[in-house]
């Protein structure tokens, strides 16, 4: 409620932001992950560099794939026709973040920088093969979402680096879905499952699956993908995938006192089936 003292500066460009940031500073965009943490005095950055009004960081463009600026809000993504068309699961996930007020302010870049394992967008970004675009003092680089999320609240981002945006392949020929089992207290995911299926007639040619919420980070689930690929997504395949997904996430499990790891692991299987049903329904 009463954050520690901090300095504040507003940057007009990415270059200015990178020049302003100090060793104990943090970038501020929508503030909906950072400020609560500061108010609880769980984090006390000495400086905030506000990137919320840098024009080049905001917006969605579609040219073959999707490019989304870091300060694009959850609501802008959830309601974007381009996102709906190229990766409807991401629109769905961003539409399930927090409440409308949070979605109006919270940004995709801030969300992934915070790397809350129970947040919704990272799970879809990992499933759909997104790339995170990063800029630092030494120039720009890109990293896959799968490699970007390292562990609980831990990313590949180095000190002083800024997420500028992310890129997604055009997935308009896939059937994708994000299905969430919300924690009744926080409405973060007890488990969230994203699936992206390429269907060839009645056969699943390729399956991409990721799980969040039940895990310390969004986890790509190769076992479940293999169990689904090449099948007609019949009950036997779904049962096998539900078993496989539990193994896929076994080493990354997370839980809390009310919804322990074992329960979340089981639910990952249940919600994988529900995600496939929604994607193909």
């Amino acid at each position: 409620m009463w954050p520690n003292k901090f300095d504040y500066a507003r940057a007009g460009s990415v270059d200015e932001a990178l020049s302003l940031i100090s060793d104990d500073g943090k970038f501020l965009a929508g503030g909906h992950s950072l400020l609560p943490v500061m108010k609880l005095r769980l984090d006390a950055p000495e400086q905030l560099v506000d990137i919320g009004r840098i024009p080049e960081l905001s917006g969605i463009s579609a040219n073959g794939g999707l490019t989304i600026g870091a300060t694009t809000t959850h609501d802008e993504i959830a309601t974007s026709d381009a996102v709906q068309s190229m990766c409807s699961a991401l629109a769905s996930a961003c539409g399930q973040v927090g409440d409308q007020g949070v979605r109006n302010f919270g940004t995709i870049g801030g969300n992934i920088a915070h790397a809350d394992p129970a947040s919704d967008p990272p799970t879809v970004l990992v499933a759909c093969g997104a790339t995170i675009n990063i800029q630092g003092a030494d120039g720009a680089r890109s990293v896959s979402a799968q490699d970007f999320f390292v562990d609980l609240f831990e990313t590949d981002l180095e000190d002083g680096e800024l997420i500028t945006g992310l890129s997604l392949p055009n997935c308009s020929d896939c059937q994708c879905a994000y299905v969430k089992f919300p924690h009744p207290a926080s409405r973060y995911a007890i488990v969230g499952v994203a699936v992206c299926l390429k269907m060839d007639g009645g056969t699943c040619a390729q399956a991409d699956v990721a799980v969040g919420g039940a895990t310390v980070k969004a986890v790509k689930c190769a076992g479940a993908e293999a169990a689904l690929a090449g099948t007609s997504l019949d009950d036997a395949a779904l049962d096998a995938a539900a078993e496989a997904v539990k193994a896929d996430i076994a080493e990354w499990l997370a839980g809390d006192i009310a919804y322990p790891e074992a329960y979340r692991q089981q639910m990952a299987g249940v919600f994988l089936k529900r995600a496939v049903a929604e994607a193909t329904g």
């Binding site: 009744p184 207290a185 006192i257």
Partner: peptide
Amino acid sequence: LTGTMQDYCM
């Protein structure tokens, strides 16, 4: 452990 509404379910 249920010190905030993130954990204490209103």
